[in-house]
Amino acid sequence: MNIDWKTAIEKLLQTETNKVAKINLEKKSIDYTDKIKNHRDEKVITGDEEIVKAFLLQRLVNELDYKPELIEKEKEYPSCRPKTTKPRIDYILRDDKGKAFFFIEAKAPEKFESDKWMIEGQLFALAVQETKGVKYLVYYTTDYQEEKLIDKAIIIDFEKYRAFEDWDKAGRPSLSDELSPGYNQPKKPPLKKGDELHDLRTSINRDDINSLASNLHNVLWGGGGTSDTEIFYSLVNIILAKIQDESEKEDGQEYDFQVYSYGENIESLKRFLNESQNFTKRH
C-alpha cells in the first residue's frame, strides 16, 4: 500500500525505540522529548512544517547519533522592529563547547522552493547573533522517494560566507544535500548509476523544475553578457552531454557529468558548464 510522506513519518516515529518525537495525524497532536532544550513546546500540529521538524529531530538523534541534550529548539532572537513577533530558529545542534554546528531552518516539502528567498532573513540574519559562532547554516526539508524518507537540504559554510550577498555572488553553493553524522563536514556523495541512495532522481515536481531553470538562467545568462545564441548552444550541450553520460554508464559507475564536492571545495558551476561543451566532443 502506498502511503504519503506524513504517514511515513508518523509510522517511523511510532516504531522508534528511542521516541524523541511523537505525532498523531488524526488528532493533530505533537510531542517532543524533554531531553532537548525546547523554548516553545508545541502540542498541536499547525502545519506540515511541524511534521518535518518532528522527523528531523529523530533523524538527528536516532540516525545521526547526536545527543538530544545538545539540541536547542525554537530559540528566539531580538527583533529589529518593535511590537513584532520575535524571529526563531527551528533547531540548533551545538558541540560540547556550545558552538552551533548546524543552524537549521525547516520547511514543509511544498514550501522548500518557494521560501528560498527567506534564507537571508531566517538563517544569515539570525546566525550572526550567535555569540559562540555558527559552523553551518541548513535550509531543510524531507523528500519521500520510493518509500524512503531522505534529507533535502542546502548546507552553507557560514564561516566562509558570512553574508548572504557573498554566498549569492558565489552561486549559492551547498556543501551537501544531506546531513552528516558525528560533527563531520557535510559532503555531497557522488552520484552513481543504480546506487540505492545516490542515483539520479526519477521523480521531480514543478518546483524542482522551476528552481533548476532559475539556476541555469543565472549561470548561463552571466549577468546579461551572454547572447541568446550562446545560451541556446550551451543549453543544448548540457542536455546532450547528460543524455550521453547516462546512457553510457553501467551500474555502479559514477556519472562524469555532475558537480563534485571535495570537502569545503565545490566545483565551480560556471567551469562545469563550460566543460560540458567539450564533453560531447570527447565522446
Rank of each mutant, 00 (worst) to 15 (best):
119 I>Q: 12
22 K>T: 14
86 K>L: 12
54 A>F: 00
49 E>L: 07
107 K>I: 02
79 S>G: 15
33 T>N: 11
26 E>C: 09
90 D>Y: 01
55 F>E: 08
92 I>A: 10
37 K>S: 14
102 F>A: 11
43 K>P: 07
20 V>H: 09
130 E>W: 01
41 D>C: 08
83 K>G: 11
44 V>G: 01
86 K>S: 12
50 E>H: 14
51 I>D: 03
78 P>K: 13
86 K>G: 04
57 L>N: 03
78 P>N: 12
27 K>W: 00
90 D>V: 01
25 L>Y: 10
36 I>K: 00
95 D>Y: 03
32 Y>V: 09
101 F>A: 07
112 F>L: 14
85 T>I: 14
40 R>E: 12
40 R>I: 03
89 I>K: 05
109 P>R: 01
124 F>P: 06
58 Q>S: 15
82 P>F: 02
52 V>K: 01
55 F>L: 13
31 D>A: 15
66 Y>R: 10
23 I>N: 06
115 D>T: 02
85 T>E: 13
128 V>A: 11
114 S>G: 05
56 L>N: 00
65 D>S: 15
55 F>G: 11
95 D>K: 09
51 I>Y: 03
80 C>G: 14
134 V>K: 03
79 S>Q: 10
102 F>K: 07
115 D>L: 07
116 K>W: 04
65 D>N: 15
90 D>A: 09
23 I>Q: 05
95 D>I: 11
60 L>H: 02
124 F>E: 05
103 F>Q: 08
88 R>Y: 00
96 D>W: 02
133 G>A: 09
49 E>C: 09
86 K>P: 01
116 K>T: 10
86 K>N: 12
25 L>N: 13
48 D>Y: 00
70 L>Y: 07
90 D>Q: 07
117 W>D: 14
35 K>I: 03
34 D>P: 03
58 Q>F: 00
62 N>I: 04
101 F>R: 03
118 M>T: 04
68 P>D: 13
88 R>W: 00
104 I>A: 05
51 I>A: 10
131 T>N: 09
124 F>L: 10
64 L>G: 14
25 L>W: 09
52 V>R: 01
58 Q>V: 02
56 L>T: 04
97 K>R: 11
116 K>V: 04
84 T>Q: 09
83 K>R: 14
54 A>D: 02
74 E>S: 13
23 I>K: 09
88 R>P: 11
84 T>M: 08
122 Q>P: 06
95 D>W: 01
32 Y>N: 06
31 D>K: 13
116 K>E: 14
54 A>M: 04
71 I>A: 11
104 I>C: 06
49 E>G: 10
89 I>N: 11
